[in-house]
Design a protein around this nucleic acid. Sequence first.
DNA 1: TATTGTTGATTGAACGTTCAATTAACAGCT
DNA 2: AGCTGTTAATTGAACGTTCAATCAACAATA
Lengths: 198, 198
Amino acid sequence: MPRPVMKKLRQQQLIDATLVSVERHGLQHTTINTISGFAGMSSGIISHYFGGKQGLIEATLRYLIDELKQALLIRTSGKTLSPAVRLSMIVEANFTELQRSEAVAKTWLSFWAQAMHDPGLARFQHINNQRLYSNLLFSFKQLLPATDAMNAAKQSAAMIDGFWLRSALSSTPEEDFKQAQILSKAFIKALIAQHGEN
Amino acid sequence: MPRPVMKKLRQQQLIDATLVSVERHGLQHTTINTISGFAGMSSGIISHYFGGKQGLIEATLRYLIDELKQALLIRTSGKTLSPAVRLSMIVEANFTELQRSEAVAKTWLSFWAQAMHDPGLARFQHINNQRLYSNLLFSFKQLLPATDAMNAAKQSAAMIDGFWLRSALSSTPEEDFKQAQILSKAFIKALIAQHGEN
DNA sequence: TATTGTTGATTGAACGTTCAATTAACAGCT
DNA sequence: AGCTGTTAATTGAACGTTCAATCAACAATA
């Protein structure tokens, strides 16, 4: 069992177990015992690989943010997309299978709440929020005047996050996530079409 | 001090103290001792008036939801407003001084996160989310065809919640809340104007 | 005095961290 | 190949802390 470089593997297993635990028990009732239990390991391993519970929590958030980043990169990097299509890709990246999953939805929400009191987590959240805005702004700028582009990016970012939040809290998340994606794209499409009319 | 009045007074003092404690320490680090400390009372009083910590937490959420409800009622009840003006009132009610305060913002976020695992809180959240949608839908229906009205209400609700969330998490909440209100109203105005053109 | 309102020390459970002990893989040596 | 020393990987019991709840005692009012 030991020898090979288990570090990367074990760390990912513990991050996965953290997501499962948060899904089942919520972040509040997630303990090193629930996590290590889902991972099939002992509690001590968490401190060994992450320096403590807090370290694992932060690593899990970093993982989620990175997955979100990758979701967009996969859809755009290398390709030459029109601004309108790229905006669609941004919407889709924010509503991937992973992002819709209960485990991830609950984890994001818990982290948002905790980020307001934890400067370490707050930094990550801020970067993540800014990225959505920047990504949107980049494409809108190619379609609208600068000021309009900024407002469009702000409104779109808010609508995407708001739809995501309301869908996650909904009693029918599946359906709501699907509609959220359609209505987000429709809004962006309308913004672009509107400009041509003036 | 008169007896019957004491109950209501003490309960509100404890709810206020809960909001202060959540602002300072976060819900996670809010204990019956931090709350009773801010209220200038002893810890035992919480169990006496709310049956326990959880009872006080739920009462605090009920208070916030009720304040939100009242904010709209004050702006609309008795008056005869055009649908467009009433939509503006709905936006304003969601960005009142109270809702923008750090204490309330942090509390809402914490509750949202906890509501995903606590059926009792989830019920309140669901009612609250539904209310914003219903309020918007009511006015949109007087301006747009039924299907368009539903989509408009969903998009507006998402944008309002999204702006609120991003503003609360922002490093410059003051400024962002102000812009959020302006851009939310602008979106609704555009929705209405758009319809006339077709 | 009786009733209501309030205190705060105490209790016991839950939790994160630590660390000595154990296990398993590998390298070097014969 | 077989043995041995070494190190990485992992365990889990023990410890100290935190916290919600309890309740016996005290205070204020009627």
